[in-house]
């Protein structure tokens, strides 16, 4: 066995161990932190699987948005948990949960064992046609050129998630702003982080967006990084979560899917098909769409973390 194989096996065992820890941990916080650590390890695994695009997504989402979402929820659950600890699940609930888990695991195992060998792939075709898009990164080409409908619907799912979060607001707060993300009087270390990290994060975000055309990267990863930067600004209280009826916010939320749909419709006129790009213009159009997707993702994720409006308009 070569050193690389030993490393891979070790990495896989480590990921498994952390995964088991995540499930078995008794304390909420231990499980949450283990899950964040699991995400970090997965980023390394994706690099070993030669999928840097996925690794980048895992790094950006896993340690940014998911980290904040889970750690905050964990802290809240912990304070709420004292009240609900009395209601212990009964034996029947335990048994049915076990039965359902077993069923799901068996089904997954069955599907994986039944995969055809060699597995069907469109990868060679995708690589062959890459030149037609003018892009150098096949992942971006697949996302925006050949599976554009999927990608657009994903953004609409994000939008629906925002609608879902906002819809739990009580009526009197509708149109108001979510509660502040951070506490009053942020401490010095947080301010330093916000002041130095955010400009650098903007540069990194734009870089990841821009290289996405030709190398690993893209709007989603860059959007997640910019979203993290906006969140750190809000946690340091340099800006507050925007009101949910802010026109700018809503335009930012819908701009990605809207521009995508308009470009798709324009394709009917210019190239004869929905989501077809005219010859020679594919790359600029794709980058244009991606820029608005970047904006939508960077706006959506912090809005999801900030939650429903909890403060009314104010004067």
């Amino acid at each position: 066995m070569s050193v690389l194989q030993i490393l891979d096996v070790g990495l896989a065992l480590l990921v498994l161990a952390v995964a088991v820890w995540t499930i078995a941990a008794r304390e909420i916080f231990g499980a949450v932190v283990a899950y964040v650590a699991y995400g970090l390890l997965l980023a390394i695994v994706w690099i070993r699987l030669f999928a840097p695009d996925v690794a980048l997504t895992e790094a950006a989402i896993g340690s940014g948005v998911t980290g904040i979402l889970l750690v905050t929820s964990g802290a809240r659950l912990k304070s709420a948990g004292k009240a609900s600890a009395a209601a212990k699940p009964g034996l029947s609930l335990h048994l049915s949960a076990a039965a359902l888990s077993l069923l799901a695991a068996t089904a997954l195992a069955g599907v994986i064992l039944a995969l055809p060998e060699p597995s069907p792939t469109l990868a060679p075709e995708a690589r062959q046609e890459l030149a037609a898009t003018g892009l150098g990164n096949p992942v971006t080409a697949v996302l925006i050129a050949w599976r554009s409908f999927d990608t657009m619907l994903e953004k609409i799912v994000l939008l629906l998630a925002v609608v879902g979060v906002w819809s739990v607001a009580s009526d009197r707060f509708w149109g108001g702003a979510p509660a502040p993300l951070g506490r009053a009087n942020p401490q010095g270390a947080l301010l330093l982080l916000e002041q130095t990290l955010v400009p650098l994060g903007i540069l990194v975000g734009v870089h990841i967006f821009w290289v996405g055309a030709n190398a690993p990267g893209g709007a989603f990863q860059a959007g997640a990084i910019l979203a993290a930067m906006w969140m750190i600004v809000m946690i340091a209280r340099a800006s507050e979560p925007p009101r949910v009826n802010s026109l700018w916010l809503r335009l930012a939320l819908i701009s990605g899917p809207a521009v995508f749909i308009v470009a798709g419709l324009a394709g009917i006129g210019m190239a004869g098909n929905f989501f077809a790009y005219p010859d020679g213009f594919a790359k600029p159009i794709i980058l244009f769409i991606e820029a608005f997707m970047l904006l939508t993702i960077a706006a959506t994720l912090p809005v999801l973390v900030a939650g429903p409006p909890r403060r009314s308009f104010g004067p």
């Binding site: 400009p199 540069l203 600004v233 340099a238």
Partner: peptide
């Protein structure tokens, strides 16, 4: 051009935050 635009955005953010 992208680098200069990103630099401008970062400088703006930096001046606003600090």
């Amino acid at each position: 051009p992208v680098g200069l635009a990103a630099t401008a955005a970062a400088t703006w953010a930096s001046l606003a935050l600090m």
